[in-house]
Nucleic acid binder design. Structure first.
Length: 286
DNA sequence: GACCAGGCCGAGC
DNA sequence: GCTCGGCATGGT
C-alpha cells in the first residue's frame, strides 16, 4: 500500500433530483460507509476510496480511482423515477410520515458478493455490530493484499482464510456460514451472474441454498445485491411495523407479512420496505 | 445484568 | 408441517 493510494485525487459533481444521501446511506442497506466531516460519507467502491457528500441538488463524489458518471448514477439508482413508488406510498396513510421524512431515499446497487456476505453477518445482529464486523474484515484482509486494492475481501481471500480467524474478527457462529459461501463462490464464479439473470423466484431458491441464509437474508441479498425490487425482507422491525399498521397488532408469521407486502406493492415492495424499515428503526412510525 | 439485534438451523413433536 | 432452544457478541 502506497501513501498515494490513500489520497483522493478525482472529483465529480452530479446534479440529482429527489435524492437523500443521508437517508440512503443510513437506512441499514449498506455497511461500508462511515460518517466523515461536514456531512460527508467515506467508503470504498470497486477497490477505490470514495468520499460522498450532498449539498442541495449537488452530489459530490470524490475518489482515488476514476469512475464513470453513469456508474455513479447507477450505483445510487439516480435514474429511477420515484414518482410511481411515491404514489403507491402516498395511498397509505400509515406510510406518509416515512415518505415525508425520508423523501429521496434510494436503493443502492451494491456489489453482489459484498451484499451477500454482509447479510450473512446480519442474522440476529444489529446494524452497529454489522458495521463493526465489516470494518474488522476490511482491516484484516486489506494489508495482506499485494495489489493495493482497498475494501471488502473478495470470496477467494475469505475462502483461503479459516473459521478461527473469522471468529476472531467477531463473526461468532456466522463464521462457518461466510466461509462456506466464500468457498462456493470462489469455486463457482458464474454463480452470482446466474442469480442476477434469474427470475426473483428462481434467484431466491439459489440464494436460499447457501448455509446461513434463510428467507429474510435471501430477500436482503436479492434486493440490495441484485436490485430485485419485488423482494420484501421481513425482519423484526418490519414484522412489528406491519403488524401494527395492517394486522391490528395480531400475531402473524413472517411468511404472511412477506406475501402481504409483495402482493400489495409488487415491484415497489423493496422500496416501500426500505422506507418502513428506516422509519421504524428511527422511531418515526410509533 | 437482562434484553435485544435486518435469523438460521436442527431436533423433537 | 410447526415450535423451540441454541448460537456469539456488543450495545443499551
Amino acid at each position: 500500500m502506497t501513501w498515494v493510494s490513500c489520497v483522493i485525487l478525482l472529483a465529480m459533481k452530479l446534479i440529482c433530483e429527489n435524492f437523500n444521501l443521508e437517508a440512503t446511506l443510513e437506512s441499514g442497506q449498506v455497511f461500508g460507509f462511515r460518517k466523515a466531516d461536514r456531512g460527508a460519507y467515506a467508503g470504498v467502491l470497486e477497490g477505490s476510496r470514495v468520499i460522498v457528500r450532498q449539498r442541495g441538488r449537488a452530489l459530490y463524489f470524490d475518489s482515488s480511482l476514476p469512475f464513470d458518471r453513469s456508474w455513479v448514477a447507477d450505483y445510487f439508482d439516480l435514474n429511477r423515477d420515484l414518482t410511481e413508488i411515491y404514489r403507491t406510498i402516498r395511498c397509505e396513510p400509515a406510510l406518509s410520515i416515512a415518505l415525508r421524512k425520508y423523501r429521496g431515499l434510494r436503493l443502492i446497487r451494491q456489489n453482489a458478493w459484498e451484499a451477500l456476505a454482509n447479510f450473512i453477518l446480519s442474522s440476529n445482529n444489529n446494524v452497529k455490530r454489522i458495521q463493526g464486523i465489516h470494518r474488522n474484515l476490511v482491516r484484516y484482509f486489506e494489508p495482506r493484499r499485494k495489489d493495493g486494492r482497498r475494501g471488502f475481501p473478495q470470496p477467494e481471500e475469505i475462502a483461503k482464510s479459516h473459521e478461527r480467524i473469522l471468529r476472531q474478527l467477531g463473526l461468532g457462529y456466522r463464521a462457518p456460514y461466510l466461509l462456506q459461501a466464500a468457498k462456493f463462490i470462489a469455486a463457482n464464479p458464474p454463480s452470482l451472474e446466474a442469480i442476477r439473470e434469474a427470475s426473483y423466484e428462481e434467484a431466491r431458491q439459489r440464494v436460499l441454498a447457501f448455509p446461513g441464509i434463510g428467507p429474510k437474508v435471501a430477500d436482503c441479498v436479492l434486493l440490495y445485491g441484485f436490485h430485485k425490487l419485488e423482494a420484501f425482507p421481513v425482519d423484526v422491525w418490519i414484522l412489528r411495523a406491519m403488524r401494527a399498521m395492517y394486522f391490528k397488532k395480531r400475531r402473524v408469521s413472517e411468511e404472511t407479512v412477506h406475501a402481504f407486502g409483495q402482493k400489495r406493492w409488487g415491484q415497489a415492495a423493496g422500496y416501500v420496505q426500505q422506507y418502513i424499515f428506516h422509519a421504524a428503526r428511527t422511531g418515526e412510525l410509533f
